[in-house]
Computed example of a mutant assay.
Amino acid sequence: MDLALLRTFVTVHRAGSFTRAAALLGLSQPAVTSQLTEITEAGLDRDSVTRTLHFAGPPEFLAERALPALTPLIAQGLSIRTAFGPAEELLSGLAAGHHDLTVTTTRPRGGLLTATPLCDEEHVLIAAPHWAAELGGTAVLQAGGARVLDTVPLVEVHESLPLIARYWSAVFDAKPAACAAVIAADLRAVLSCVTAGAGLAVLPRYLCADALDNGQVVALLDPPVPPLRTYFLAVRTGTLGLPHIARAHEWLLRTAVDW
């Protein structure tokens, strides 16, 4: 192995992040990630022993985006084991060594975990077309605000209404007036309920884009600044020195540019 590449590998391992390693080496961050990618590609291809990545995150995001993105690494000798759950639970599992890589919407604090922004998701207020017709259209909703929606049942992933409450605060500067009519712990189930006409929901655009395109649901509003939520890619500090973790981490960051 080239000694310069080996030095980069060791520095990333000790520093715990590409940014700190780049500063120590006097290189740009893209140069460091490029060198580490060269190392990990060679390591995965050369090593006949299967390397297992313990990967955790929201079930919908992993199923629709992250896991398909990692598929090319399977041919290079990577195997993947997944875990799903709430953000705090998964971050605790990551800190305890149960996971290697975690996608989360909560930025971890402290020095034990290192998080890198992965992508932003736009949230969309959706309902079946008949609800939009009953409400009188977007113009009525824009004029009347959140109170116009009080008659429409709410569909959410949790009793605390995390997505709806965030949207109401950002767009209407208000709190939801009602409890959820349906609680489904998977956003894909929320979308199915909304498509069937159960009520309205707030969902990430990537998850409901097809349903919007084919007319199964409609966006009730198009705010000038749509609410966004950031996904982070978290690891235990120092573990990016392990080739299979570093490779998956870099691969996801590259792929997420197009998300």
Rank of each mutant, 00 (worst) to 15 (best):
D120I: 00
G145T: 05
T104A: 11
L101D: 01
D210N: 07
A83Q: 12
L253T: 09
L70Y: 02
A248Y: 02
A21S: 08
G215S: 03
L70W: 02
R166G: 06
G16V: 01
D100L: 04
A66L: 10
A83L: 14
R51W: 05
G77F: 06
D173K: 12
V182P: 05
R205K: 12
R65I: 15
P176K: 04
T237P: 03
S79C: 05
L212I: 07
V217L: 08
R229P: 00
L220E: 06
R236H: 08
L221W: 04
T19W: 08
S48C: 04
A198C: 13
D186E: 13
A177Y: 14
E250V: 13
Q142R: 14
E121A: 09
E122P: 04
H13P: 00
A83K: 12
L228C: 09
A132E: 03
R81F: 05
L135K: 01
L5E: 14
T50K: 12
V190T: 13
I164C: 06
R65K: 13
R229A: 12
L212P: 01
R205I: 11
G97I: 14
R46V: 10
R81S: 15
A22V: 10
D213Q: 09
V140N: 06
W251V: 06
A127V: 01
P129D: 03
H13D: 07
E38W: 07
T151K: 14
F172V: 04
C193F: 13
T82E: 08
F172P: 00
D47H: 08
V171L: 09
A174P: 04
M1W: 06
C208Y: 01
P108S: 08
A201F: 01
D150W: 11
T82Q: 10
A42K: 13
V155S: 09
A143V: 04
A69N: 06
V202K: 05
L187T: 08
L228W: 09
V140E: 15
L149D: 03
A180F: 05
A83T: 13
P59Q: 08
L25D: 03
L113C: 09
A127L: 03
